[in-house]
């Protein structure tokens, strides 16, 4: 077994032991509750929004919380003096995060297919979720690097939510309707995320899809390189999370 898989299995076991797995199960149940309470039989309109909230915020939270734990209990230090490359470590965290978002998507999609109506292909949603969760797991690293402690991490997450996540959500709920604001929101990675998640409904223009794919794809590559470079500095600093 290569060290990559040892790390992966260890990570899964810890998600379970540190109750992060049950926390994400609770969140998934919460989403099902929301879907259950929705009066509309066809939930094609609301479904991507739920997935949007889950794949962005849960991805950031999962990376942040697990690294915070590892740094606090010192196990991160130990990992650094074992034959694991930082690339293995970072890939592991991102893969686990993406997998968790994919599982949530699958559960919610099954629920909707069985009890409600939806007019979106699963594969399209799957692709979108993978890219969105990957990008946001890297955002999670970035926010963690720049947080002195857990409180600072939570505050940084809040900032990301208020600046990027919520405005886009309000736009899609048609609470924000000014053209100028909608135009400005193209700067936000969360807008690209929302475009991709709605694309499987089949009403998105091609240029928008290309833009969103480009933004999150190239963005992920740039973020990944940056996160990789800064990892050691973060890991050995005593003051960081």
């Amino acid at each position: 077994m290569t060290n990559f898989f040892v790390l992966l299995l260890g990570e899964i076991k810890r998600l379970q032991r540190y109750n992060i797995l049950s926390a994400s199960a609770v969140v998934a149940l919460l989403w099902i509750g929301v879907l259950y309470l929705t009066e509309l039989p066809d939930i094609t309109f609301i479904f991507p929004m739920l997935i949007y909230v889950d794949a962005t915020s849960m991805a950031i939270l999962m990376v942040g919380v697990t690294i915070f734990f590892e740094k606090q209990e010192g196990s991160l230090h130990t990992l650094l003096v074992t034959p694991i490359s930082k690339l293995d470590y970072l890939l592991n965290k991102s893969i686990i995060t993406v997998a968790s978002s994919v599982i949530t998507l699958t559960i919610l999609y099954l629920y909707v297919v069985i009890f409600k109506e939806i007019d979106m292909s699963f594969l399209g949603l799957l692709g979108a979720v993978i890219l969105v969760a990957l990008f946001h797991s890297l955002v999670g690293f970035l926010l963690t690097y720049n947080s002195r402690d857990f409180t600072a991490l939570l505050i940084n997450m809040m900032k990301y939510m208020f600046i990027f996540m919520i405005p886009v959500l309000l736009e899609y709920m048609q609470i924000i309707q000014q053209d100028i604001v909608e135009a400005i929101l193209y700067i936000a990675p969360t807008k690209a995320a929302m475009i991709l998640l709605y694309a499987p409904a089949g009403e998105t223009e091609l240029w928008e899809i290309v833009y969103a794919l480009g933004y999150l794809g190239i963005g992920s590559i740039i973020l990944f390189i940056f996160v990789l470079k800064r990892f050691e500095q973060f890991a050995v600093s005593e003051s960081g999370v």
Partner: peptide, 26 residues
Amino acid sequence: GVGFEVPVHFSKLTADENIHFFKKLY
């Protein structure tokens, strides 16, 4: 092999699980 002056284990795993996890990396 590196012994740190501070605690460095996965606190919610057992001693055995910790040791076996790290052992498999070598």
